[in-house]
Amino acid sequence: MYNNTFGNLFRLTSFGESHGKAIGGVIDGFPAGIVIDMDFIQQELNRRRPGQSAITTARKEADEVEFLSGIYEGVSTGCPIGFAVWNTNQHSNDYDNMKDVYRPSHADYTYTEKYGIRDHRGGGRSSARETIARVVAGALAKLALRQLGIQITAFTSQVGPYILEKDYTQYDLTRIEENSVRCPDQELAAKMADYIYKIKGEGNTIGGVISCVIKGCPIGLGQPVFGKLHAALGNAMLSINAVKGFEYGQGFGSMEQKGSEQNDIFYNENGKIALRTNRSGGIQGGISNGEDIYFRVAFKPVATVLMEQPTVDRLGNETILKARGRHDPCVLPRAVPIVEAMAAMTILDYYLLNKTTRL
């Protein structure tokens, strides 16, 4: 297996399986001299960890990170940062009935065909538990970006039929942690949570959309051909488990408009070039233009449903599977910090790359 590394100059190589001993990673290219706020890193892991509310999986994990290298007296040294998060609450027996059966819409079949072997316990390497390493690396990237005045905020904007109707600028994004769904509209968040709880009671799952806003990003990140910033963000988001789509700016929602209606018009504001609108989502020609970068990420319903479904075993015999174990009825609440982490790693990586393009 290869391609376990993300990034160019700022790089994360992750390792570990859902029911293995640990999830961890090695970070290359992290700048020296960054004060490492351990409480902040743990806070980010707490936002992702299981068992945090009635609408998430019941698996209980402390998800406490242990740093092994690259940090001395609370400050990054510029050396590779190694870390591990130890698994402590695996219920591997829950997956015994799935050992020789292919779960619908899972990676079981493709993984087995590609490698000839798979760890069926919790999905092994294909489990979303791998994203712990991304959240640790993303938290470190956020600490570096904080010194540059760059802020990244993701939030749940749709769960099934429940959708935030207004533009993100109409909401107070500082309030997303006030509810279990991580939606800035408290009234809609309550409806989303009730709906997820209802779906969970049916043994079923539901998907939706996470939106993300990046503020304070400088002009010039990205390259105009194969290194487009929006392509890098899309690659980062589409690498997350259960993600099915990515759009930035107005995206698919503006296809009925003409160019004259969609263009962002430049004007002179007190001697500075400015834009009257930001329909481009902060990126033009693959390069950041200094405006807010905003995008949306679509997540499918979790493939594991706690109800009977027809499938086949590894020999092709038709059978019925009823999954057991502890699973999220909706990934969105726990995926918010993962989206932020992947965005932070991408922006920091492209910031470091940009420093190599001009003297």
Rank of each mutant, 00 (worst) to 15 (best):
T5A: 12
R11C: 06
S14H: 14
G16R: 02
S18N: 01
G20T: 08
G24D: 02
G25V: 07
G29F: 08
F30K: 06
I41R: 11
R49V: 03
G51V: 04
Q52C: 06
Q52W: 00
I55F: 07
A58D: 10
K60Y: 01
E61W: 01
S69I: 01
G70W: 11
E73D: 11
S76F: 12
S76Q: 12
V85I: 14
W86F: 15
T88Q: 14
Q90Y: 13
Y95D: 00
M98D: 05
K99L: 12
Y102S: 04
H106M: 09
Y109V: 00
K114S: 00
D119N: 14
H120Q: 03
G124R: 08
R125W: 09
V136F: 06
A141M: 05
L143F: 06
A144N: 09
L148S: 10
Q151W: 07
T156D: 04
G160K: 00
G160A: 11
L164R: 07
D172C: 05
D185Q: 02
D185T: 08
K191Y: 10
Y195Q: 13
Y195N: 14
N204W: 03
P218W: 12
G222Q: 01
Q223C: 08
P224Q: 11
L229S: 05
Y248F: 15
G253I: 00
G253W: 01
S254T: 08
M255Y: 01
E256A: 13
K258H: 07
S260H: 10
N263M: 12
I265P: 11
L275C: 08
N278E: 08
R279S: 09
G282W: 07
G286S: 08
G286F: 01
N289Y: 10
E291Q: 15
D292S: 10
D292W: 02
I293R: 12
R296A: 08
A303G: 04
L306H: 04
T311N: 11
T311C: 10
G316P: 00
E318C: 09
I320L: 15
K322V: 14
K322C: 14
P329Q: 12
V336D: 02
I338S: 05
M345L: 13
T346K: 05
I347P: 06
L348Q: 13
D349N: 12
L352Y: 02
K355I: 12
L359P: 13
